[in-house]
Design a protein around this nucleic acid. Structure first.
Lengths: 180, 180
DNA sequence: GTCTATATTAAGATAGAC
DNA sequence: GTCTATCTTAATATAGAC
């Protein structure tokens, strides 16, 4: 069993319980591995597990979001494809964003730099695509930021209000909104 | 010393360290009270401290955000006044939102209901103001949600990217955007 | 590569003196 | 109303057998 086997399980635990709440006991139970076995796969303990998950998410973005932004077609099409993938990974708004989770509270100092790199890559890529369509660079950057803001905000509010329809509406309207 | 004395200190600790990270030891040090003294003021421990802070924030909203929305003037003016207060309470984007913090991770189950009530009150109030100006109710509701989404998303991104200019831009543009 | 058993630390919480 | 001292539990982490 490679350590990659446990990444989806770790991601779910972190999303559900947060960094502090995802204890080694819970991880042990969910993975079916004893604590000592977890340290065999992740010698640096929980922080290494989280870093591994973040690397996985960075890869996922590279292989899903960025290709969606580079497909042939209009900006509208590109944004629709990206939103489809975001809708998948956030399970229609049911699943919170690990980036936001790790940025709040005690885990922030540990993982902030890694999260920042991922978020920046996403926003930079959107900015580039929008610029390439002839938009002024500053305007493109602002629109890219607005997309990330809307996604993150919609996830927070959907969880806070127990109403995924907020996230779903944002996902549906975003492509048009970026083009408008 | 009433327990209200310690609310600003508790709020800061919770915003900085999160629910799990704001330990009784840190609270004891920051307030200058021993652990046993903290239990004198908050017999139910940390959860009662957090609930007290949430009640304070609900009051703060009642006395700051809602009045701003009810001042004389156009929707633009109302929104500008509300944004001024939000800019204050979030320290220009430097300070994270306790609601978002508590909604993520292990504290979610404990405080979700209380947070939901506060967020709903805010959104409902904005919806009412927008409706009163002649807007269709569903449209008004959507715009109100969009405001909350933009604020929450901008706070997340500003912290994630170490760049409060995102929050400040959103705060600046929101009033116009709601009216557009 | 997985386990049992355990070490170490720190968390939340309480008793009882002053 | 605040304190010192202590209790209980659970967290991360490790040693060493298999």
């Amino acid at each position: 069993m490679s350590r990659n086997t446990y990444i989806p399980c770790l991601l779910n635990l972190l999303c559900q319980y947060g960094y502090d709440g995802a204890t080694l006991s819970k991880i042990s139970e969910a993975t079916g591995l004893g604590k000592a076995s977890l340290y065999h796969h992740f010698p640096n303990g929980k922080d290494e597990m989280v870093t591994t998950v973040l690397n996985f998410l960075a890869d996922w973005m590279e292989q899903n979001i960025l290709p969606a932004l580079k497909t042939e077609g209009s900006i509208l099409i590109k944004m629709e494809r990206m939103c489809d993938r975001l809708n998948e990974v956030y399970a229609g708004g049911e699943k919170p964003c690990l980036f936001a989770i790790l940025l709040m509270g005690s885990s922030r100092d540990i993982f902030h730099d890694q999260v920042k790199v991922i978020l920046l890559k996403w926003i930079n890529e959107m900015t580039e695509v929008l610029s390439a369509s002839g938009l002024d660079t500053a305007i493109a950057r602002g629109k890219a930021e607005d997309v990330a803001i809307a996604i993150q905000g919609a996830l927070i509010l959907s969880h806070g209000l127990d109403d995924v329809s907020l996230f779903q509406r944002i996902i549906r309207q975003l492509p048009q909104r970026v083009c408008g």
